[in-house]
Design a protein around this nucleic acid. Sequence first.
DNA 1: CCAGACGTTGTT
DNA 2: GTCTGG
DNA 3: CCAGACGTTGTT
DNA 4: GTCTGG
Length: 226
Amino acid sequence: MCGRITQKSNAKKLGLGLASADHVVPGVAPPRYNGSPGQEHWVIREQPETHAYSLDRLWWGLIPHWCKDPQGDRKPINAKAETIASLPSFRDGYKKRRCLVPIDNFFEWKAIKGAYKQPYAIGMKSGAPFALAGIWENWKRPSTEEWVRTFTIITTEANDLMRPIHDRMPVIIGPADYARWLSPDEPDPRDLLRPYPAEPMTMWPISSRVNKPVDDDPEILDAVGI
DNA sequence: CCAGACGTTGTT
DNA sequence: GTCTGG
DNA sequence: CCAGACGTTGTT
DNA sequence: GTCTGG
């Protein structure tokens, strides 16, 4: 599963060669060294009309458009690849509002029976940013009429690298498939929702300092070993 | 018909 | 135990 | 995901 | 908004 990410590279790199974010005001988009659900993160989308790609900040935790009061309701941070095409909360987004979440790493906790959990960082051997598959939604806050944009990350079964620590992992989209995943002309690209090959990936144990959901502590860099 | 849910994970 | 907040 | 709280009243 | 359960 996937409940913590890093977006430490600059916006140019996190655009993955598809999108840029030069319109973003400096200072409003700090790097995420230990990013959590409930925070804003970089997300790449395709504009339906112009087919241009954009890199924007969306809230992690999907709020369906029909939701009255997300205070009381849950905001799913993950959606299962196996069921996303049919579940009421996800199927419209899956058809029409797919996105890529560009990251440097994600974290996973290995549950050790009767004991602590050991956090791990997972990334590419190359150190390059890569893309997770997501879907997003628009939601209008009734009190202020303001539009809120949220996303959720799709999960699938673990690959050989991750299976020792966890039975699920986020869906990773390779560069060759960016365009297909984002294209509104592909209503059901479910063949992309499979475990990513283990070979280009790497994984290492990190300090449990990352347990604390604080992502602006510079010392977190040591914890992650970056 | 209306009311109520709508999600995932892990752990017991 | 379960929910909210980061 | 984990950490931390775990409450009520009335008024804006 | 749409589906399930009573």
